[in-house]
Write a protein that binds this DNA or RNA. Structure first.
Length: 260
DNA sequence: ACGATTTGACCTCC
DNA sequence: GGAGGTCAAATCGT
C-alpha cells in the first residue's frame, strides 16, 4: 500500500510536470486536447491516491486486508516487493497435463482489461462459494502462434464503489503480438483492446442493485497482489506496457494492432 | 460471412 | 463424486 501510494504521488508530480510541458504546445487545438488529457490523468491519480489513503486509515477487512504483493515463481517460492507482506496461505499450484507446475501469477485489480494483449474468451464457470462466475480467456493467438498464455478473471465481492477483479495469469506470452504503444491523440478516440464492460463482467443487475456484502475468500485462495502496475518481473515480461523501472502506461488502442 | 461469445457437456484432478 | 477447467456447437454482432 505504501509503495502504491508513493508511486501514485510520483505519478501526480510527473503529471504536473507534463502539464507544464504541454501548455507550451503552440497549436491551440492540440494544446487544449493535451491539457484535457493530462488533466484527466491527474484526476485519476489523485482519486486513486485518496482511495488508497482512505483504505489505509480503515481497519483491515477480511477481504482487502489480505491483499499483498506477492510473486510466485515456478518453483513455488514467494517473492516480496517493497516490504509488503505476502500472506502465508496454502498455495495450490496449477499443473499442466504432464504434472509440471505452470508459471502463474494472481493480481487483484480494478482494471483487468488494460494489458495490451488480445484475449479470447473460451469459458465461464460458476465457482463454488464465489458470488460471481470465473471467466476463462486464452491468448487470441493461441492457435496461430501456439501461445500458451491464459488468464482467469473473477470479480470479487466488495462493498467499494469500484469492483475488484482477481486476475490469474497462466503461462507467459510467446506470441509478441502486442498492440502498438503509440500515443493516443485525444481521449475521445480511445477504444479498448479488450472490452470488459460487457455484461459478463458486470455484476448481475440484481446483484449490482443489492450491494453485495463481504464474503470470506475461498479456502484455497492464494495470496494476491493489489494492482498498480508494474507487478514484478513476471508481469514485466508478460505485460510489457509496464517498464521494469516502475513506470506504467495505460494503453487505449485507437485501432487494431499488428496482425489484425 | 466471419470472428467473438455463450453455455451445456465433457474431461481431469483431488 | 464433486469442483474446476476446457471444448465445441449454437448464437450473436458487425
Amino acid at each position: 500500500m505504501d509503495a502504491a501510494i508513493q508511486e501514485l504521488r510520483r505519478g501526480t508530480r510527473l503529471a504536473d510536470l507534463l502539464m507544464q510541458q504541454v501548455e507550451l504546445i503552440p497549436e491551440l487545438e492540440r494544446r487544449h486536447a493535451a491539457v484535457a488529457n493530462v488533466g484527466e490523468i491527474s484526476t485519476a491519480m489523485e482519486s486513486s491516491l485518496s482511495l488508497l489513503q482512505s483504505e489505509m486509515e480503515r481497519p483491515p477487512s477480511p477481504e482487502v486486508g489480505a491483499v499483498a504483493m506477492a510473486a510466485y515463481s515456478s518453483d513455488g517460492s514467494i517473492g516480496e516487493r517493497n516490504g509488503a507482506v505476502a500472506s502465508a496461505r496454502r498455495v495450490r499450484h496449477r499443473r499442466g497435463r504432464d504434472g509440471a507446475e505452470l508459471p502463474m501469477k494472481e493480481i487483484l485489480t480494478e482494471a483487468p482489461e488494460n494489458d495490451r494483449f488480445h484475449w479470447r474468451k473460451y469459458g465461464e464457470k460458476k465457482i463454488l462459494k464465489a458470488e460471481y462466475p470465473r471467466l476463462y480467456y486464452k491468448c487470441g493467438y493461441s492457435d496461430d502462434h501456439k501461445c500458451p498464455a491464459k488468464k482467469y478473471v473473477q470479480q470479487q465481492s466488495n462493498n467499494g464503489p469500484t469492483p475488484l477483479f482477481m486476475v490469474t495469469l497462466i503461462n507467459k506470452h510467446t506470441c509478441e503480438t502486442l498492440f502498438p504503444d503509440e500515443p493516443s491523440s485525444s481521449s475521445t478516440s480511445a477504444s479498448q483492446v479488450l472490452d470488459f464492460t460487457k455484461a459478463s463482467l458486470s455484476p448481475p443487475p440484481v446483484m449490482a442493485a443489492a450491494a453485495p456484502g463481504l464474503k470470506k475468500e475461498e479456502e484455497d485462495s492464494m495470496s494476491v497482489s493489489m494492482h498498480s502496475y508494474p507487478y514484478d518481473e513476471y508481469l514485466s515480461s508478460s505485460f510489457p506496457m509496464m517498464s521494469p523501472d516502475g513506470d506504467y502506461q495505460v494503453k487505449f488502442s485507437p485501432g487494431p494492432g499488428p496482425g489484425w
